[in-house]
């Protein structure tokens, strides 16, 4: 395996034993060719455990976003494997990837990316509505809307919502199909600290109360401190990880890495 790249001791945590919902095995991703080639992921191996809230951290250009995109099937690896459950996403075609996204994955983006023509409710139920075999679980929808505090805004268009409300709609949209894993890419990047704090609390609650698995790419130590586990990426591979990190632990580590 890729143990040579990892500090002793972290391999056990990062490795593939245990109950992994998503995992990367010997994952390499190169952009460009020849002299201009940039290796964003370099033979990285990592697993993400069920019911865990994991933060992926690292300096700019460390490959943390690429790691998330390849793990979720949005991007393809140059070599190696990306699994969701037992499915190797690199073997799936566009149609199969679409089905995988609508049923097993959820996404939350920094810029929300809601569909402007659809109401908040329609945006939330989008993944379920796209799936001809699924029906919206109205109780779950009501529960989510209640927890996220958007139960009175469901009929509004995104343009009629505040930034925080839009991101909560995006969270509900990610959670509604009860996906195996939610990938969040800098979800608090566009929010103020109060709204950020509320959002992270919701995500924490989703893991604790609903058993959700969340992988969050962030550069915010406060955000990482809400997680069960934080993994550090540098130069395209995993360099360290920690369980139940504090803000100070994270800041120290980041300083060390940069």
């Amino acid at each position: 395996m890729s143990g040579v790249d990892l500090p002793v001791g972290s391999n056990g945590e990062a490795g593939l034993d245990g109950d992994n919902v998503a995992r990367l095995v010997a994952a390499t991703k190169t952009f460009g060719e020849g002299d201009a080639a940039v290796t964003a992921l370099n033979n990285a191996t990592i697993g993400f455990r069920r019911r865990q809230f994991t933060a992926v951290m690292g300096p700019s250009g460390s490959g943390k976003s690429t790691l998330m995109y390849c793990q979720s099937g949005l991007d393809r690896l140059t070599s190696g494997h990306a699994y969701i459950g037992d499915v190797d996403v690199s073997t799936l075609n566009d149609q199969q990837l679409s089905v995988l996204r609508r049923s097993k994955l959820g996404f939350i983006f920094q810029s929300f990316h809601l569909v402007p023509a659809l109401s908040a409710r329609e945006n939330i139920t989008l993944p379920v509505d796209l799936n001809p075999d699924a029906e919206v679980d109205e109780d779950f929808l009501a529960e989510l809307a209640g927890v996220l505090g958007i139960e009175n805004r469901l009929q509004n268009l995104p343009s009629q919502l505040s930034g925080g409300q839009r991101q909560r709609v995006a969270v509900a949209r990610a959670m509604i199909p009860r996906p195996d894993v939610i990938f969040a890419d800098e979800p608090t990047g566009a929010l103020d600290s109060k709204t950020s704090g509320e959002l992270l609390a919701y995500l924490r609650q989703a893991v604790d109360d609903l058993g959700q698995t969340i992988v969050m790419v962030t550069h915010d130590a406060v955000a990482a401190s809400h997680c069960d586990r934080v993994v550090y990426v540098q130069d395209g591979h995993l360099v360290d990880e920690a369980m139940n990190p504090t803000v100070d632990d994270v800041l120290d580590k980041i300083r060390e890495l940069s």
């Binding site: 089905v99 995988l100 996204r101 609508r102 990316h113 809601l114 796209l130």
Partner: peptide, 12 residues
Amino acid sequence: GEIAATRAAGAS
């Protein structure tokens, strides 16, 4: 942006 979001939500 909206098309990408819909694709990410699972639209083929």
